[in-house]
């Protein structure tokens, strides 16, 4: 059994490296998947993931059969983690398919007016390529396909037809939304408070003459830096905790 698994992961590793994935990333993916398989009581890797070359193609997003239609609409938008799933499913229901997340964390969507489908979305947490590969393998049997990741969370999509069949057909298209940024109340409040604190700090420094202030209080720079780092870390861990709990507005 172990030899069968070793051969499978050798072939998977070769295919991933051939697609341009760095060797250390490939090693991490293989280790994670092997651990996943061990948790599944030594299930057959081909049954679990499919043929290694095809699974590698799915992990690297290669070789899709159908390309985008020429008349397709595109729309980029962003939101926060407290509203993302609700809005993704709302717009997925209007035929918007997320193709990827760009570097700014925006959902890059397309919709072909001639052949639109309803889509549904879910979100998972994953740290690094290996965990993303494991989440992808876990969700694939229920037709979920990865459609983008940002920081420590990733998104999956599937046509609603995967559960509802022809009843999920989209008869009429809503107009393309004009909005591109849709933050909820919680994030807007955090942004306002952060902006006000920054403004107060700048005004205080300017009014007290920055050079004199720092000369008189050299420790103040360290205090400001520590406050910034603490705020950043607090925000990061708070966000991570809320993603793990699935907190929504």
């Amino acid at each position: 059994m172990m030899t069968v698994h070793a051969t499978y992961f050798d072939r998977l590793g070769t295919a991933l490296r051939a697609s341009g994935r760095p060797a250390d990333e490939v090693a991490a993916i293989v280790a994670e998947l092997a651990a996943h398989l061990a948790d599944a009581d030594g299930a057959d890797p081909v049954e679990e993931f499919g043929a290694p070359e095809e699974f590698a193609a799915r992990l690297t997003g290669g070789a899709e059969v159908a390309g985008p239609a020429t008349g397709a609409e595109t729309w980029k938008w962003t939101t926060d983690i407290y509203n993302d799933r609700r809005l993704l499913n709302q717009y997925g229901d209007q035929g918007w398919e997320v193709e990827r997340l760009d570097r700014l964390g925006r959902f890059v969507c397309r919709r072909d007016p001639a052949d639109a489908l309803r889509w549904e979305y879910c979100r998972a947490m994953a740290n690094g390529a290996a965990e993303r590969a494991a989440r992808t393998a876990e969700l694939a049997p229920d037709a979920w396909e990865p459609c983008g990741h940002w920081a420590f969370y990733m998104y999956f999509k599937r046509p609603k037809a995967a559960s509802a069949g022809p009843a999920a057909a989209l008869d009429a298209l809503a107009r393309t939304p004009a909005e591109h940024v849709m933050f909820g109340g919680r994030v807007r409040r955090v942004l306002v408070v952060t902006g006000l604190l920054a403004l107060v700090a700048v005004v205080a420094l300017v009014c007290s003459d920055y050079g004199d202030f720092v000369a008189a209080h050299p420790w103040s720079l360290a205090v400001f830096a520590a406050a910034g780092v603490a705020g950043g870390l607090g925000g990061w861990y708070g966000t991570k905790r809320d993603v793990a709990k699935g907190v929504e507005e």
Binding site: E54, A57, R58, G62, A63, E64, V65, A66, E97, D115, L117, A143, E145, K157, R158, P159, A161, A162
Partner: peptide, 11 residues
Amino acid sequence: LGDIKGGTLYP
């Protein structure tokens, strides 16, 4: 036959 995505298969 290649990786056939849900957007192609389910229609």
